[in-house]
Amino acid sequence: MDELDRRIVNALQGGFPICERPFAVAAEGLGIEEATLIARLAALREAGVLSRFGPLWKAEGLGGAVTLAAMAVPPDRFEAVTALVNAHPEVAHNYERTHRLNMWFVLATETPQGIDAAIQAIEAETGIPVLNMPREAEYHVGLRLEA
């Protein structure tokens, strides 16, 4: 990544115009050509720096539900339990963490009932209790990282 890539990533994390020629508008703000911006974004996506370029929306807005769940997985079973958990399409991402509760994953389902169903299925398959910790309040929106 060079200086221009960094500027692009920093500028576009905050937002992107919704209009006929959005790349032209964003490029103007950056002082570059539209074609340059498009080419840079394509390269950043290819390199894996950008996972997506588009809208972020709320699952709840589409009638879905999201929660954070945690399990205390015995270390010798960690790989096997990971495979069982990740096989569920409702599992959006899954992190190992430094705690007795060592597996933390996000569940996203099409309906609120889907959360309970997924948790029950994971508990039945693994024999390990799942703690369900849905968001009750949010104090900040948006993940923004300086490149």
């Binding site: 720096v49 950008l50 972020l56 929306w57 709320k58 929106v141």
Partner: peptide, 16 residues
């Protein structure tokens, strides 16, 4: 209506 909360790039923090 707030269904889409923002529009922009999604970075992979690890790659960054």
């Amino acid at each position: 209506r707030g269904v889409v909360r923002r529009f922009g790039v999604v970075v992979r923090h690890h790659e960054l």
